[in-house]
């Protein structure tokens, strides 16, 4: 199946991917050493790593023959932007609702 691009929320919705991020938050690791922490097959782990890489949560650096995974901030920033957006969003919408309701009383 073609690897589809997931957004930040979908990426971290998966427990295995969260665990990969957790492991990488301690130190950068090779794909092989990450795979050792999971029951699933190495290709399955690779697939999760690819998802994390595509979404900007990690970067992969080739050092010699090994592929090293390192945490990257971009993916986390996207999550943060969404929440900031919604907080601001509801704040301004509710202000408007309050104004409408106030008008309604004054018109009586």
């Amino acid at each position: 199946m073609e690897q589809q691009r997931l957004d930040a929320f979908q990426v971290i919705a998966d427990p295995s991917r969260r665990q990969i991020l957790f492991l990488l938050s301690k130190d950068s690791r090779t794909i092989n050493s990450l795979a050792e922490n999971f029951e699933m097959s190495r290709p399955a782990v690779s697939k999760h790593i690819k998802v994390l890489n595509n979404a900007g949560f990690i970067s992969i650096e080739d050092i010699g023959r090994e592929r090293h995974c390192v945490l990257k901030q971009d993916g986390f920033n996207q999550l943060h932007e969404w929440l900031a957006y919604y907080d601001n969003f509801w704040g301004s919408k509710l202000q408007k609702l309050g104004d409408l309701l106030k008008d309604r009383i004054e018109k009586k």
Partner: peptide, 24 residues
Amino acid sequence: EGASFIDLFTGMSTGWPKQIQKLL
């Protein structure tokens, strides 16, 4: 989905891997 830890990311420019550890 999965975003309950977002606020911990604010101001994570320094030492943010530690914060990620905590919130994960």
